[in-house]
C-alpha cells in the first residue's frame, strides 16, 4: 500500500534538475501566467532550505531585491519550474540558513565550495 503511494510520488520526480545543495545560489526559471500570455521569470538567490521528499519537495530561495529581502518557495517538481541553474555553489554547515535573514551585505556572504 505504502509502496503504491511512493510509486506515484516517484513518478512525478523530474530528473532534469542539476544537483545542488543548501547554500548554493540558484537561478530558477519559473513560468508565470499573465492573462493569456505565459512568460518565464528568473528568480536568482541563495537556497536557504529544502523541505519534503519525492514529488512534494520544495526549495526556499532568498534574494535581496532593491535592498528588501525576498523569499520564494518553489515546488521543485512543478511543471511550472522550467529549469534550474546553479549560479554558484556555496559552503555552509547547516541545513537551513535562516540566520541569513538577520544579516545584511558583507556578513550575508557564503563561502564558495571547491
Amino acid at each position: 500500500m505504502a509502496n503504491l503511494i511512493s510509486m506515484l510520488e516517484q513518478k512525478e520526480v523530474r530528473t532534469d534538475h542539476p544537483k545542488f545543495q543548501v547554500g548554493d545560489t540558484l537561478r530558477v526559471f519559473f513560468k508565470i501566467k499573465e492573462g493569456d500570455k505565459e512568460r518565464v521569470q528568473v528568480f536568482e538567490g541563495v537556497l536557504i532550505g529544502e523541505r519534503g521528499a519525492a514529488n512534494r519537495k520544495a526549495i526556499t530561495v532568498r534574494k535581496i531585491s532593491f535592498s528588501c529581502g525576498v523569499e520564494r518557495i518553489f515546488p521543485l517538481y512543478s511543471p511550472r519550474v522550467e529549469k534550474i541553474e546553479v549560479a554558484q555553489s556555496g559552503h555552509v554547515r547547516r541545513a537551513k540558513l535562516y540566520y541569513l535573514r538577520d544579516l545584511r551585505g558583507k556578513k550575508a556572504r557564503i563561502r564558495e565550495r571547491e
Binding site: 503511494i5 501566467k33 511543471p79
Partner: peptide, 11 residues
C-alpha cells in the same frame, strides 16, 4: 490506499 499530491499539467 492513502493520500498524496499530484501536479496537473499547468502546475
Amino acid at each position: 490506499v492513502g493520500m498524496t499530491q499530484v501536479f496537473l499539467d499547468d502546475g
